[in-house]
């Protein structure tokens, strides 16, 4: 099956660098500005944009992302806005992948979500609170629509769970580099590299992207030294929370994009 994510991350690899994956939630500070910020992230050098679906109970996210997402939830931002963002990111030349907690997808309808996401040009979805064990409906719908599906692995994942999860992934696997919620950290830590190594031993052909903690170009370079892709979320959102707007997002992207090329 042709995978947009695999193709784009593979292209970066062919250039001898890691891919840059930028996360931004739809609807902060409002829908048009959030989409503008995503496009700015692409213009600054992001290869992939993780388009965040606002959710009232984002249990895996730290205070930075929750603060932004709460605004979007209160404004009633929904899947229609998310699909607009998907189209805009695709038009800007990056690969759009939706990042959503499971309930908004289930509420929208799993098959309907897959169909509409594919139609909008989306690559697939990252589902942080959906493990493959519970993903029967999503596995079927993403197969039917030809979508990528990204599950998470963690340092605490057993070998058996690692193998099961990697077998269910398409596009890439999201390696949560530290135990904990999203947020910028001053060090990314050795656990990330160890997890990437374990992942590659089980699934050498699947791209491994590392998230949770990267905030600047130097850290991006460090992660790019051992991973196929560098995922940055809270640092992007921080640009918007601090009022730097799409211009701040673009500048951060440029710094990070240089980082992933320094590996």
């Amino acid at each position: 099956m042709n995978s947009q994510l695999d193709t784009r991350i593979g292209a970066a690899k062919a250039e001898g660098r890691a891919a840059l994956i930028a996360y931004l939630p739809v609807g902060y500070p409002d829908v048009p500005t959030s989409i503008e910020a995503m496009v700015a992230a692409v213009e600054g050098g992001a290869d992939v944009v993780e388009i965040g679906v606002p959710y009232s109970d984002p249990g895996m996210d730290g205070p930075t992302i929750q603060e932004a997402v709460d605004v979007a939830v209160r404004a009633g931002v929904g899947m229609a806005d998310v699909l607009s963002a998907v189209s805009a990111v695709a038009a800007a030349g990056a690969v759009p992948v939706v990042m959503s907690y499971w309930n908004p997808i289930e509420r929208y309808g799993v098959e309907r979500f897959a169909t509409d996401l594919a139609a909008a040009g989306g690559a697939g979805a990252i589902t942080p609170d959906l493990i493959p064990d519970e993903a029967g409906a999503w596995l079927a719908a993403s197969d039917a629509a030809g979508l990528d599906r990204v599950f998470l692995v963690a340092p605490s994942s057993t070998d058996a769970r690692l193998a099961m999860t990697l077998a269910a992934c398409r596009g890439f696997v999201y390696a949560a580099s530290t135990m904990g919620v999203t947020g910028t950290r001053s060090t990314v830590g050795d656990t990330a590299q160890a997890l990437v190594t374990r992942t590659r031993e089980v699934a050498p052909d699947l791209a491994v992207c590392v998230g949770l903690g990267v905030s600047d170009g130097d850290q991006a370079a460090e992660v790019a030294g051992f991973a196929d892709g560098v995922i940055v979320g809270s640092a992007y959102v921080r640009q918007l929370l601090d009022g730097h707007g799409p211009a701040g997002v673009r500048a951060l992207s440029e710094d990070l994009a240089a980082g992933v090329r320094r590996r």
């Binding site: 493990i131 998470l152 692995v153 963690a154 769970r161």
Partner: peptide, 8 residues
Amino acid sequence: FVPEALIA
């Protein structure tokens, strides 16, 4: 329905 990090 939890992050993989909690499964262990």
